Computed example of a mutant assay.
Amino acid sequence: MGLFDNIGTPVSTNAPQQSGNRTVDVTFARLPENFAEFAALPQAALANPFDTAALTVLALCFYPQDKDASIQMLGLLKGPQPLSAYEQQFLRDRFSAADYVPRSYFVGATPNNDYKPAEPYTVKVSENPYSYQEQGYAKLYLQSGGADSPRAVTLRLAKDGKWYLWEQFLLAGIRQPESSNPWA
């Protein structure tokens, strides 16, 4: 069964209670197969920054199989600030070398299993005491199974009450999957 064999229906989302050193699990029973299913996910309401951060992983995972749908998903997450030509070129550059990086943010995805996530699909999103230093912004962190330190995602609260993707640093290099690493 492939990464996107099922439709994206959440199992649970633990909504944020207060800021501090907290990790929220955003869990999906199945993953979307297209933009319409992505947009229909309850998390696509963008009601909190944790959901938006987790959806960023889903949108990036979609890129290798359907670049246009992935860009459309990211556009939904970006809201009033569209995906720039620079950001689109950045995605092309990153995915030309390694399509496994976004999958590494799901629980259970490690270099040893070629970044195959555990089911249900869970993204752990963490905050720290500095996550909300700038009013209207949240800087949250996601741990890759192939990196030693978490990677940041910045979200911005718009006047419509939704948390939109402002910038992401999720596509930095990580350890190669064991199957493609000649040194493993």
Score class of each variant (00 low, 15 high):
Arg151Lys: 08
Ser70Thr: 05
Thr110Pro: 11
Asn21Cys: 00
Trp166Gly: 10
Ser131Ala: 13
Asp5Ala: 03
Val153Glu: 08
Ala59Cys: 11
Asp114Trp: 11
Pro150His: 06
Ala158Thr: 05
Tyr137Lys: 13
Thr13Gln: 14
Pro10Trp: 06
Gly108Ser: 03
Pro182Ala: 08
Ala44Asp: 00
Thr23Tyr: 04
Pro32Lys: 00
Leu41Met: 15
Gly145Lys: 07
Val101Glu: 08
Ala98Lys: 11
Asp114His: 06
Pro111Trp: 13
Pro16Thr: 01
Asp93Leu: 03
Glu127Asn: 09
Tyr115Ile: 03
Cys61Ala: 02
Leu41Val: 05
Thr13Arg: 15
Leu142Gly: 02
Leu55Tyr: 00
Thr56Leu: 09
Pro182Phe: 09
Leu46Phe: 03
Tyr105His: 00
Phe169Tyr: 11
Gln168Trp: 11
Arg175Ile: 09
Pro117Gly: 10
Ile71Lys: 10
Ala54Asn: 02
Asn14Pro: 10
Lys162His: 11
Ser179Met: 04
Met1Cys: 08
Ser104Tyr: 13
Gln89Val: 02
Tyr130Asp: 13
Gln72Val: 07
Phe28Tyr: 15
Ala158Glu: 13
Ile7Asn: 08
Tyr105Leu: 01
Ala85Gly: 03
Ser149Lys: 09
Glu37Gly: 02
Phe169His: 07
Ser84Thr: 15
Val153Ile: 14
Pro117Glu: 06
Ile71Ser: 06
Phe35Met: 03
Ser96Thr: 10
Ala47Tyr: 02
Phe169Leu: 04
Phe106Arg: 00
Phe106Cys: 09
Gly173Arg: 13
Arg92Cys: 08
Thr154Val: 15
Gln81Thr: 13
Tyr130Asn: 11
Glu119Met: 10
Asp160Ile: 00
Leu157His: 12
Asp99Val: 02
Leu74Asp: 05
Glu167Arg: 10
Ser126Lys: 04
Ala184Cys: 08
Pro102Val: 01
Lys162Ser: 07
Gly145Phe: 14
Gln81Glu: 15
Thr23Glu: 10
Thr110Arg: 11
Met1Lys: 07
Lys162Arg: 14
Leu77Gln: 01
Gly108Thr: 07
Lys124Asn: 14
Ser126Arg: 07
Val123Asp: 03
Pro117Trp: 10
Asp5Met: 03
Phe35Val: 07
Asp68His: 02
Asn14Gln: 12
Ala39Leu: 04
Pro32Leu: 00
Leu60Pro: 12
Val107Lys: 10
Phe50Asp: 00
Pro42Asp: 04
Thr23His: 03
Glu87Ile: 02
Phe35Ala: 10
Met73Thr: 01
Pro102Arg: 00
Arg156Lys: 12
Gly79Glu: 06
Val153Lys: 11
Gly20Met: 11
Pro82Leu: 10
Phe90Tyr: 11
Asp160Leu: 00
Gln89Arg: 15
Tyr141Leu: 13
Val123Phe: 07
Met73Gly: 01
Lys124Ser: 07
Ser126Tyr: 06
Glu134Cys: 01
Pro177Trp: 15
Ala85Lys: 04
Asp5Glu: 14
Val26Lys: 09
Val101Cys: 12
Arg103Asn: 14
Ala69Cys: 02
Arg94Leu: 02
Ala59Phe: 10
Gly173His: 13
Ala158Leu: 02
Gln81Ser: 13
Asn113Trp: 12
Trp183Ala: 12
Ala53Thr: 09
Glu134Met: 04
Gln18Arg: 06
Asp99Cys: 04
Ser149Thr: 12
Leu170Phe: 06
Pro32Thr: 01
Gly20Val: 06
Asp160Cys: 01
Asp25Trp: 05
Met73Pro: 00
